[in-house]
Amino acid sequence: MATPGDPSAKKKKAEGGAIHIPNPHLEEIKEDVLYHFALSTATHDFPALFGDVKFVCVGGSPSRMKNFISFIAEDLGISTPGGEHPNICAGTDRYAMYKVGPVLSVSHGMGIPSIAIMLHELIKLLHYAKCTNVIVVRIGTSGGLGLEPGSVVITQQSVDAAFKPQLEQVILGKSIFRSTALDKELAEELLECGKELNQFSTVAGNTMCTLDFYEGQARLDGAICSYSEEEKLQYLKSAYEAGVRNIEMESSVFAAMCNLCGLRGAVVCVTLLNRLDGDQITTPHEVLKEYQTRPQKLVGHFIKKRLGKQ
C-alpha cells in the first residue's frame, strides 16, 4: 500500500515547465491513438495544432465548454473565421474540445471515471504537442456547504467522503493512495481575481469529491437511502467542520493526475444550493444559467491578467 502523495511531484513541476509522463511503456508505441478524442499521433500534427496552449479549462458538459470558448475568445479579443469554434473531437461523441489562441476548452463528462479517461488522453496530447508551463483549471458546478447559492469556491484541497486529502485507486488488485493537494499559489491567485471582479462571493475551501450524486453526497431524495435526516445533517456538519465548502464528483482524480504529471491545477466551482438547507435544486433555470457563468468570468479574468490584457 502506497502512502498519500508523490514526494517527487514538486520536483517534476520545476523541470522547465515540461509535462511529465510517468509511463515508460509509451516510448514503445509507434502510433498513439487517443481513442476518446478521435485523434492520433500518426494522423495529427500535435505540436502544430496544440503547441501554443498555455491554459486548459475543463468542465462537465460539451455545451458549457463551447460557451466558454466563445466567451474567452470575445474576452481576449481573438476573432475566428465566421466567429465559429469547431469541435476538434467531432469524430467522437465522448468528449468535445475547442481551441482559441492559447486556450483549450474540453468537456469531461460526470464523475471520476469519465474525467480520468479524458485526463489521460489530454495529458498525453499536451506532452506530444511539447507544451510547457500549462495551467489546467476545472470549472463547474457543485453543492455548497454553509454558503449562499451562487458562491464560487476555489478548492484548497480535494478530500474524499471521509474528509481525507487522498484518492484511493485499486490498481492490480491493490489500493493505491495519491495526494489530492492543489497548487496553493495558483489558488491564491484565483481567489485574488475573484476579489478584483467583486461581482459575486468567492471563497477558498476544501472540496469533497464523491463517487455518487445521491447517497454518496448524503441526499435523501435518491431511489435508495439508508440513513435518517438527522444522520445526514450530522455528516454534512462534520464535513463543514473539516473545512469542506462544496461537494462535487471530479476534483480528487483531477488533483492527483495534475500532481503526478507536473501540471499546475485548480478547481473553480459555483455552488447551486446550500446542502444544509436541502437536497433538490429548485432555483429558476435563468438564475442557474447566470450562476454557471461565474467560474467562466473568474477564470477569464485570470487568463487576461496572465496574458497582460487587463
Rank of each mutant, 00 (worst) to 15 (best):
A2Q: 09
A2C: 11
T3M: 13
D6T: 13
P7H: 14
A9I: 03
K12N: 04
K12C: 08
K13M: 11
E15F: 05
A18N: 12
P22I: 00
N23S: 01
P24A: 07
E28C: 13
I29H: 07
D32I: 15
V33K: 14
Y35R: 11
S40L: 05
S40Y: 06
T41L: 00
T43Q: 14
G51K: 02
C57K: 07
G59F: 05
S61T: 14
S61M: 10
P62W: 08
K66A: 13
K66V: 04
N67R: 07
I69C: 15
S70A: 13
F71D: 00
F71V: 09
A73L: 04
D75K: 15
T80A: 11
G83F: 04
I88G: 05
G91A: 11
A96S: 15
M97P: 01
M97E: 04
Y98F: 15
Y98T: 06
K99P: 07
G101A: 14
S107C: 07
H108G: 13
G109Q: 05
M110R: 02
M110N: 06
I112F: 02
P113C: 01
I117V: 09
E121L: 01
E121K: 03
E121V: 01
L122C: 02
L125N: 05
H127C: 06
Y128H: 15
C131L: 06
T132E: 13
I135R: 09
I135H: 02
R138E: 03
T141V: 08
S142G: 03
L145I: 08
G146I: 06
V153A: 12
I154G: 12
Q157F: 04
D160H: 01
K164T: 12
P165Y: 00
Q166H: 08
E168I: 01
L172D: 14
S175V: 15
S175L: 10
R178C: 05
T180C: 03
D183F: 01
E188H: 14
L191D: 12
E192W: 11
L197Q: 11
L197K: 04
N198F: 09
T202S: 13
A204Q: 13
M208P: 01
T210R: 00
G216D: 00
Q217G: 01
Q217A: 02
A218K: 11
R219T: 03
D221A: 11
I224F: 07
C225W: 02
S228H: 11
E230A: 14
K232G: 06
A239R: 03
A239N: 06
E241F: 09
M249R: 01
M249W: 02
F254M: 04
A255M: 02
A255V: 02
A256F: 03
C258H: 00
L260C: 08
G265W: 00
G265P: 06
V268E: 01
L272V: 14
R275V: 04
D277N: 10
G278E: 06
I281S: 07
P284G: 12
E286T: 12
E286L: 14
L288T: 09
Q296D: 09
K297L: 08
G308H: 13
Q310M: 10
Q310K: 15
